[in-house]
Amino acid sequence: MSNTGYEPSTVAQRVADDESDPFVLDVRREEEYDEWQIPGSTNLPIYDELLDYDYSTLEAHLDDLPEDEEIIVVCIAGVTSARAADFLREHGYDAESVDDGMNGWGRVHRQYELDVDGVVQIVRPGTGCVSYLVHDGDEAVVVDPTQYVEEYLAAAEERDLEIVGVTDTHAHADHVSGARRLAGELDVPYYLHREDVADLDRVTELADGDAIEVGSRELDVRHTPGHTPGSVSFEYGDALLSGDTLFLRSVGRPDLEDSSEDAVRTAASRLFDSLDDLTDLDDGTVVLPGHFSDEEVRPLATELGELRAESTNELLSYVEDGDEEAFVETIVESLADEPANYNEIKQINWGKEQPGDDVEELELGPNNCAAN
């Protein structure tokens, strides 16, 4: 059996490259594929057969596979996909496996330079998480880092930047934040709004109207509660780092603090007010969200005026129309499943629990932070 395959980061680059357009064959079980997959991939659910070295179903579907292009095979951890790739090569196909499978896919980070001065976007395509390196001169602040802090250290080093602060836009429920660890390793402030601090210590608390210095510029704080009580958005020049308050096609769900209907309605009303405040910004303001679902645009950036004009963000249109009742009712009626392991992740990000050996696996899976 071959012991080498594609690095997940290489697959992410090829998937994002329109000219490459690889054929990705996912051999996991159908229910696992339906929940979370590489965009554009094809599912052939033969995982259990491959565990037993049974290639009969794969052989029966050989005619369904392209003979004139490379096949990239993915499974959970890279074992059964490697078996499938070997079998395909033996039958004349150009096939490779994805090292570490979907587990590796969930850890990939990709950097994007923006047209906005002083902002680098760092996208985690496998989980829908988006973070930022905001910089001026030779200084930088990291916004919403994942637990893979080496990604931000490398991004800063590539640009000869010194990280002088780290911040979260809110206490996350979908992924384990790397902000406290990164701030601790660098001995720089960790910023978080006071309403999301919970049991955390060594936090520089933020409030509406505060500013975080970055070189000779400032990252301006706007308190935008709703997704969480302490959610904030940051203004940086023409950019709005909107965290989980405003996405390109939805808004942040308001039920991850308290899922009772009364609490959700109250939080949704706060979110409506926060979004109403943000829509007062200039149309040219570039919205940089903290998450995405299946949007293919890279980098993830849209002017506020375009979001208003488009019909792809239904909830934002209710805010534009001043229809709070429709906004709240739509959220209450259309909430999706909660992010995987979100309660345990919240406890870690609130400082109530220490991360265990399974901290990487906790957050793998689809991103469900949007309200609809």
Rank of each mutant, 00 (worst) to 15 (best):
D283M: 09
T302Q: 07
G356N: 11
G209W: 08
H91N: 14
V203Y: 02
P8T: 11
E70A: 04
L300M: 12
H91W: 11
L153N: 04
V98D: 00
D199N: 09
V141R: 03
D258S: 02
A85M: 08
A267N: 14
T57D: 05
E70M: 02
G322C: 12
L307I: 07
R202N: 07
I46Y: 05
A370Y: 14
E333Q: 11
P125R: 00
A154W: 01
N343C: 05
D199P: 13
F23V: 11
D321Q: 11
S259E: 15
E195S: 10
Q354G: 06
R265A: 06
L246V: 09
L206K: 01
V24T: 04
T146M: 09
E310M: 01
A77C: 02
S259I: 02
S269V: 14
N343Q: 11
K352I: 13
A267H: 14
H175I: 03
S317M: 02
G365C: 06
L256Q: 07
G230T: 00
L65N: 13
Y148D: 12
L62Q: 07
E185L: 13
T167E: 00
D17Y: 00
Y132Q: 10
L200C: 04
E363W: 13
R194M: 00
Y112F: 12
I38M: 05
A263I: 09
A156K: 07
E32N: 11
D48Q: 14
P339K: 08
P66K: 01
D34T: 04
L316R: 15
S216C: 06
N341I: 10
P366I: 12
L62A: 03
I212H: 03
E113A: 15
R217F: 04
A211D: 10
P145Q: 09
E329M: 02
A371P: 02
V287M: 01
G365E: 05
A207F: 04
G128Y: 13
G356Y: 08
F292H: 15
K352F: 15
N103V: 09
A154S: 15
V119H: 04
L25V: 09
P22A: 02
S2R: 15
G137C: 06
A207N: 11
A183Q: 03
G137I: 08
S177L: 03
A370H: 15
P45Y: 03
F234A: 05
T169W: 08
G209M: 05
D262W: 15
A179Y: 01
V149M: 10
D238N: 14
A16V: 02
D18M: 02
V11G: 02
G226Q: 00
L206R: 03
I331G: 01
D210I: 05
T57V: 10
G118Y: 07
V119Y: 04
L335C: 05
E35M: 08
I71N: 09
E139K: 01
V116A: 15
L281S: 10
L44R: 07
L161K: 06
T302S: 11
A60K: 14
E344N: 15
S259H: 15
G226E: 01
E70H: 08
G118P: 10
A140T: 05
D210P: 07
F247N: 04
S317L: 09
E320C: 06
V143Y: 08
T146D: 11
I348C: 04
V116W: 06
E353P: 00
L362C: 15
I163N: 00
H193Y: 05
L133R: 11
D273Y: 00
G78W: 06
